[in-house]
Amino acid sequence: MTLPTPLTGVVPPVCTPLTPDGEVDVPSLLALVDHLVAGGVHGLFVLGSSSEAAYLTDRQRELVVRAVTAHVAGQLPVLAGAIDMTTPRVRDHVAAVTAAGADAVVVTAPFYTRTHPAEIARHYRLVAAASPVPVVAYDIPSAVGTKLPAEILLELAADGVLAGLKDSSGDLGGFRRIVTGVRDRPGASGFALLTGSELVVDSALALGADGAVPGLSNVDPHGYVRLYRLCRAGDWDGARAEQERLCALFGMVGVGDPARMGGSSSALGAFKAALHLRGVISCPATAEPQVPLSGEETERVGKYLAAAGLL
């Protein structure tokens, strides 16, 4: 598989179904992939935040990539997260996921230690020099504590170091500056601009994004593909209506009681509960130490699904 230039469309950050004892549930993972492919998605992103990559062992990460790439057998590009604290560790992950068949890698800024912008740029250059596949930057300051500077991204795009950006910063104005900068920067053509937001896909596409990587597309891939097609057809009224339906569905991420669980437990628990209720995966378990949803909270997820026409 050769990564399209630029990568476009809906690229779900694939959830990682687990067994009750915390192992990767490969049959459910492949059923989820089939569900996404049937929904018309344009690529798959494994080992991202919605994949619970931070909770998986290296053995489990490699298993996920091997299982998915073997199953799709080149039908769609498969991007894999190579996410870790430092450049040497990221390069080890790049080697592992590309050996397992990934068509591109998705890499954050270094984290845990404070990192200067010049060190972030050096990090990406060193990773790209060692990678046999394209490198996509992952801007997720909520997880790594660093917002990727626009000028560094544009410089690395123009130099051919980076093949694209997954923007999960929540900064639509900043994303717009990068879209404009890529358009105006010689050498940056082909740089894929992907929003990671569930809630403003229509706005991002209107600004010039190439596609979207929304976690909720695990639950409703047909809806996000429909939204993408409406935007590309210029039917902005239809797109707005579809986006608003998906925004209402996204309310499920708040079902968890904040007095006893964090936002990740609530959101990922809701996605997995929804997939379980829809009959896609066998078990809604999330990785430890996340707190599982209660029966009442799972019932609320079902109500969101029913209101969106998915049950």
Rank of each mutant, 00 (worst) to 15 (best):
M1T: 08
L3A: 13
T8G: 02
V10D: 00
V11N: 14
P12K: 15
V14P: 07
P20H: 11
V24H: 11
V24D: 10
D25L: 12
V26L: 08
V33H: 03
H35K: 08
H35W: 12
L36I: 03
V37E: 13
V41S: 14
V41G: 13
V46I: 10
S49M: 02
E52I: 04
A53D: 02
L56A: 08
R59V: 09
Q60G: 00
R61C: 05
L63I: 04
V65Q: 02
A67G: 09
V68P: 07
T69K: 09
A70L: 12
H71P: 02
L79A: 04
A80C: 08
A82R: 06
A82N: 06
M85E: 12
T86H: 13
T87A: 06
V90H: 07
R91I: 15
D92F: 12
H93Q: 15
A95S: 14
V97I: 04
A100I: 01
A104N: 03
V105P: 05
V105C: 11
V106I: 04
R114P: 00
A118C: 03
A118V: 09
A118T: 08
E119G: 05
I120S: 12
I120E: 10
R125V: 08
V127C: 05
A128L: 10
A129R: 15
A129H: 08
V133F: 05
V135F: 11
S142L: 02
S142E: 01
G145I: 01
K147G: 08
A150F: 00
L153G: 09
L154T: 03
A158W: 10
A158D: 06
A158H: 09
D159Y: 04
V161K: 11
A163D: 04
A163E: 04
S168T: 06
S169F: 09
D171P: 04
G173N: 12
G174Y: 05
F175Q: 01
V179W: 04
T180G: 13
V182I: 05
P186Q: 07
G187W: 03
L193V: 03
T195S: 13
S197G: 14
V200W: 15
A204Y: 07
L207P: 06
G208Q: 00
L216T: 05
S217P: 13
H222A: 15
L227R: 04
A233R: 11
G234S: 11
W236V: 02
R240M: 07
A241V: 07
Q243T: 03
M252D: 10
M252A: 14
M252F: 14
G254L: 01
G256F: 05
D257K: 01
G262A: 11
S266K: 07
A267Q: 10
A270M: 07
A273Q: 06
A273T: 11
H276C: 12
L277G: 03
L277K: 10
A285L: 00
E288Y: 12
T298V: 15
E299S: 10
V301L: 10
G302Q: 12
G302D: 13
A308K: 13
L311D: 11
